[in-house]
Every structure is written in structure tokens, then in C-alpha cells.
Design a protein around this nucleic acid. Sequence first.
RNA 1: GCUCCCGUAGCUCAGUGGAUAGAGCAUCUGCCUUCUAAGCAGAGGGUCGCACGUUCGAGUCGUGCCGGGGGUACCA
Length: 537
Amino acid sequence: MLGDTFVRIMRAAGYEVEVQNYVDNTGVQVADCVVGFEHIEHMTLETVRALDESLPPERPFDYYCWDLYARVGLFYRNGDANAKEDAERLRLRGETLRVIEEGNNPTAELADYVATRILDCHLTTMLRLGIVYDVLPRESEILHLHFWDKAFGRLRETNAIRYEAEGRNAGCWVMPTNLHTSTDEHEADKIIVRSNGTVTYAGKDIAYQLWKLGRLNLDFYYKPFRNYSNDHVAWITTSDVSQASSADAPKFGGGSKIYNVIDSRQSYTQDIVRQGVAAVAPEVGAEASVHLSYEMVALSPAACEDLGIELSAEDRARSFIEMSGRKGLGVKADDLITRLEEVAETEVSERHPELSGKARKETAHIIAIGALRYFLLKWTRTSVIAFDFKEALSFEGETGPYCQYAAVRANSIFRKMNDKIYSQAIQFIKRLKETEVAEQVKNSFANESGDEFWTMLTLAARLDEAIAQSAAQAEPAYLAKYTFQLARAFNLFYHRHRIISEEDATRRHLLIAIADIARGQLTRSLATLGIAVPERM
RNA sequence: GCUCCCGUAGCUCAGUGGAUAGAGCAUCUGCCUUCUAAGCAGAGGGUCGCACGUUCGAGUCGUGCCGGGGGUACCA
């Protein structure tokens, strides 16, 4: 949500932006799902595929894997959530990870199926929120197309990493760093290549970021993955030349600046990655790679209760509880969106019984997405979001629907206004430079409403400034706050002035012009946040 | 230990060195014969964690302390 909105803001500010979604298809989470299928359920690619096809639409493959992943967490602990992980069972993960990385074996094929299906589900969920991607670089290609090998060579040449022959990290390639000092418990150096020869995420991300900056002189092969519309396809990387249609794909990567939208808990890893990138490509330096970090979305104690999760007395006293996929502790985006849509539909049906079922659903969807997007965007990136159902499902006060409502009210003025009154106002405003007209306007601004007019107009005029500032600070919350202020100002303006029925013609022309400007700016501001305005609400 | 972030109204949070520190929620009180009340107006509620410093001026910058959280994995 943060990344998508930042993209919209950057584009609105005039930048050319490419949207990538990194597909970590050789990582531990995929490996764990595969361990679940192979060693708990004793399934193969064929039976997993059959299972997938038999799943009901309300509990699709990603839901199944969410549950399975939590079961694997228990499996590693021999069924006791509080026990230590069993070293023997944990070895299954390591072996699975290694075999996946190696490729060309049944386990790797199963992993590929699982990762691809999860990705497909993920894109569908994101599309509900209005989020789309340009390219989906897969971690497996970073390895198979030798991105890593090349980056590895450069890291060695520049002495950014060194081989440890002995000690705790014997057999590993590590990157020395002074980002923090070492203790008995914690080594200062970061392991880039494990003693079994596999590469850590940090290593793969260094290679990936070098490609993103056009500093690797290698490229992926591409094939279409998802058709959003006729002119927008999300391309996925492949190492299989025969399947690729790279010639039809746009040119990806090679950016001058990259924003890596990653949880602040990964800031240490990102610092390491940036250090590695800067060592290999000193000409672009560390500034070219920005860690666009954000604090986590956690659960409020009340939300845990709503989810039926029992909390210790200690946890209940906390302001938030961290989500955990491994513990199955979290809110699934699809569930939340569906719930928001249901609540919105109830409201829409009450207010607009005349609308068709289809129109109600469409309106409810727009409101639900507006509510969710604003709810997640109103917090600054450094603030932990303690997710609360009551707050997230609220449509009043500082919310997306409040802002949408202001725009809907504005539009409804113009829907009810007859064309003649509107065109009169437009003609009048066009003649502003004429002395006589200017004099009339000046008089209208001179009375007690003048200040209100100016407040509304100057605030509306600051949209571009708000977008520029939001882009410069990489802080979507700034634009969210501005949008709310603009909506609030319009609601007050709407309340204070009758527009269509205003009898003083000059005053009416001005009210119409101001309302027209306000609704235009509000609509643009909302669109930049990825929030649409429904016909009615 | 080291390191990063947070501490502002009952709660959740904004706040770009500059005016009397602001929103939303919650509580209380008003306002629908009108372009939509998912709205508007009003009331109460503050030692901006503490101390010292820089400055004409500090919620904002610096130093130290106190409290909370994250990271410091051969996870990501």
C-alpha cells in the first residue's frame, strides 16, 4: 500500500517510475511450505495440483498455505508451540532450501508450483486494492542467470567480503561492517554465503539492486504473467529462453534511483546491502539505493480478541501484538477487504435502496478500498500501526469515506445544477480580467465570506505543493493528511453556503467556481492516494 | 553491550526552528422543510517523558538520563 501510493505520488510529481515486486521463490518460507507438503502431508507436485484444483473459492490455495505454514512451525517444534525447534526436523528445511536452489528436481518443481500459485493469489489480492506491478523479478533467476555469481566476483575483487577459514563463521563468506560492534553473543560481520555454499538474502539483494541500478550488465528473460488490461501486462522473469518473449517486453531495470519498500526491521540487512552495492558500484554510491522503511502493522489487543486469540496478561497490557505467520497470528487482506465491503454495502443499501444490487456492490467496493487505503496511509512511516477492527471499519471522522463523501457531495451539486447556471458561472470567471467583473468579485471577497473563500481556494491550490513535499520526504501520510484537510474545508464550505439557490448572481458564480476547483483538486488528491470517488454514497 | 525508532489531550496520532501546540476517537450539548447528517458547530480535556545546553525564539536542534519497542540469524 505504501509502495503503490508512493509510486502514484512520484508519478504525480512528474517522475518516471517502474514498479517491481520481488518474488522470493527460493527462500525459507517457500521451503517451509514444501516441507509441509512433502513431510507432513506426504504429497507430490501431482497431488498438490489436484488439491489446489479441488479447493473452494472462499478458501483458495494461499489460505491453505497460510494454515500449512503455521502447522510446519509446530512440526519443527514437535507439536509444542513453546518448545525449541528440533534440530533433526530443521535439517529438512536446510536440505529443501539447498535442493530448491539447485533446481531440476521434483522438490524444486513443487516449490516452483507453490511459489507461482501464491504469487498469482497475491496479485489478485493486490488488484482488489488497485495495486498493479510492471515486472516480477524472481530470486531463482538471480541465481540461475548468474546475477549472483557476477556480483559475488565483484564483491571479492573489491574486498567487500572475505572468506572465513576458521572460527564461528568458518566456511562462510562474510561482509565486515562497523554498523555495530560485536560482542560474545553477536558477531559484527554479516554472512553473505553460508558454509553450505547457499547465498543469504542480503547477497541475493546486492545482485538484484546492482541490476536495478543497471550496474550488472546482465539481464533476465521475460514472459507475460498477468494481463491487467490491453496496455498493461505484469512481466515475470524466467531463465528458460525457450519460454521467454523478451523481445516484446519493455526494458526493465537500469534506474537512476531505487526505493526499496521494506519493513524497518530489515534496516540492518538493508544497510549491509547498500554497503555492498556501494563497494561494487562506487560511481552511483550509497545514495542511489534508498531503504523506504516503514514500521510494522501489528494487532491491537482488541483485534486479537476479535480474532479469538488468547492473550497473556502481559500481552494484554501492551499497546500492540506483533503479527506472526509462523504462529498463524494475523489478519488476511482478503478477509479484511471482504468485511469492509460487507459493512459498506449495508450502509449503501440503507441510504440508497433505489440502486441496483450491482451498483450497490460497486459503490461498497470503492468505499471499502477508500477506507482501507486511507486507514493504512494516515500514519507516518515511523509509527507502528496497531490494527484495530473498530478503527479500520470506521467510515466517520478522519477516514477515506469522509474524504470521498466530501467529493460525492461536491459532484452532486454539479449533477443537480442546470447547464445554464453552470455556463453562466464559467463565462463570468473567464471575464475576471475585465475591470467591471473584477470589481464585483472584489466586493464579494470583501464581505465576511471572503476569508472563507480564500481559505478554501488557497488550500485547494496547494495540492501540487503537497504532492511535491510528499514525494521529497517519501511520506504518503503527508498527502493523506492534506487530503483530509481539503475534504474538511470543503465540508465546511458546503455547510456554510447554498450554491445552486444563491440569488446574488456574482456570489453564485464565485461559489460555483470555488466548488468546481475544490472538487477537482480533492478528486486528484484522492486519486493520487489510489482512492476513487463513487457516484453516490 | 552496540545500534535504530518512539515518548505530545482519557485513547490513537499529526506537528517544515517562529503567532494562543492541533486532528480523529471517546464524553457532553446543539443543528436535517434546504446542493446527501458517512455532515456541521460548540464544551471540557496539555508540566509536549525528565534535566541541562544552543538560539532573539525549542514539541522541533545538541548532550545526558528515564520509560517502551525493533535490530544486532548460516530467516527474510
